[in-house]
């Protein structure tokens, strides 16, 4: 894995205070998430990313990498840029007018911001589950089949198979198998969120991004989502934003702590929670702010 050289950081964060710069340098260099397994490949590699909403900078020189088939949790106080960062990974920020990104983000060995990249293709490789469940006002079947259909699958038989497999993967099949033609709007909140996960799985992605997927759910539904993430990480690379520290500890192998648009610290979850190397991280996880 390539280590960023510190000279570049100094130039891109000239506006930051020297103290912040110091912590950032150590954060991005020393605590980069290292694969536990020597053979695990890097799935996402983020290098020196600055992100702007118009003139307002929301991310400051963020560098990290996510190993394949693992879960990385993004934590930090609200407004610190977690969602913004997550959306840079599938270029959902492109939709917002006046946004701009500097630096590079690689998915496997492709720079996803290279001019030749087709965002449509990128988004079917990098799926996303939103905070508020967003079922389409259609049947359960049509919700799941939407992704494969727009990608060109027309065979009813194939679609049926995909719907069944995806719903089983999302642990929703048993609850809905007898009412696939009912409206998805009639499902409970937790079921709707699992439907959205199933819908994402149906496009056969490699990476799944989740933005506080359980924050609007009751504890029982939350537990089911967490179990699901635990299962999915065997097959998929997952990046999940959460404001719930216990959740981060339960589902993720790696955790990244963001504060005011900066990546303060990233490392193995256990390590970061028991022995954070930054004061700000410690303050946050012990509940002193945020």
């Amino acid at each position: 894995m390539e280590q960023p050289d510190t000279g570049e950081i100094t130039s891109t964060t000239s506006s930051a205070s020297s103290e912040k710069r110091q912590s950032l340098v150590s954060g991005s260099n020393l605590n980069r998430a290292q694969p536990t397994d020597e053979n695990a490949r890097t799935m996402i590699d983020v290098n020196h990313v600055n992100f702007y909403y118009g003139d307002v900078q929301a991310l400051f020189d963020v560098s990290l990498s996510v190993p394949e088939k693992s879960v990385m949790a993004l934590i930090g106080p609200s407004g610190c840029g977690k969602s913004t960062f997550l959306r840079t990974l599938n270029r959902m920020n492109d939709i917002i007018e006046g946004t701009r990104l500097e630096g590079s983000i690689r998915l496997e060995d492709q720079d996803i911001y290279a001019p030749a990249i087709d965002v449509v293709a990128l988004r079917s490789r990098v799926g996303m589950v939103f905070q508020k469940s967003t079922p389409f006002p259609k049947s359960i079947f049509d919700n799941i089949a939407f992704g494969p259909r727009i990608a060109g699958t027309t065979s009813r038989k194939k679609l049926k198979d995909i719907v069944e497999v995806s719903l089983k993967q999302a642990a929703l099949w048993d609850e809905v198998k007898d009412r696939l033609n009912d409206s998805a709007m009639a499902l409970s909140g937790g079921q709707q969120q699992r439907l959205c996960i199933a819908r994402t799985l149906a496009t056969n992605p490699e990476v799944i991004l989740m933005d506080e997927p359980a924050s609007a759910l009751d504890p029982a539904s939350t537990a089911r989502i967490e179990d699901l993430i635990f299962e999915l990480r065997k097959q998929y690379t997952i990046v999940i934003v959460t404001h719930n520290m216990q959740q981060a500890a339960r589902v993720s192998q790696y955790t990244a702590f963001f504060y005011q648009g900066r990546l303060i610290e990233v490392g193995q979850t256990q390590e970061l929670f028991t022995n954070p190397s930054e004061k700000q991280t410690e303050d946050y996880i012990t509940g002193r702010f945020g």
Partner: peptide, 15 residues
């Protein structure tokens, strides 16, 4: 039409 509907669709790789 809620923007979330568009976002969900675009995030699934729809044009």
């Amino acid at each position: 039409v809620p923007p979330s509907l568009r976002h969900a669709s675009l995030a699934l790789g729809a044009t």
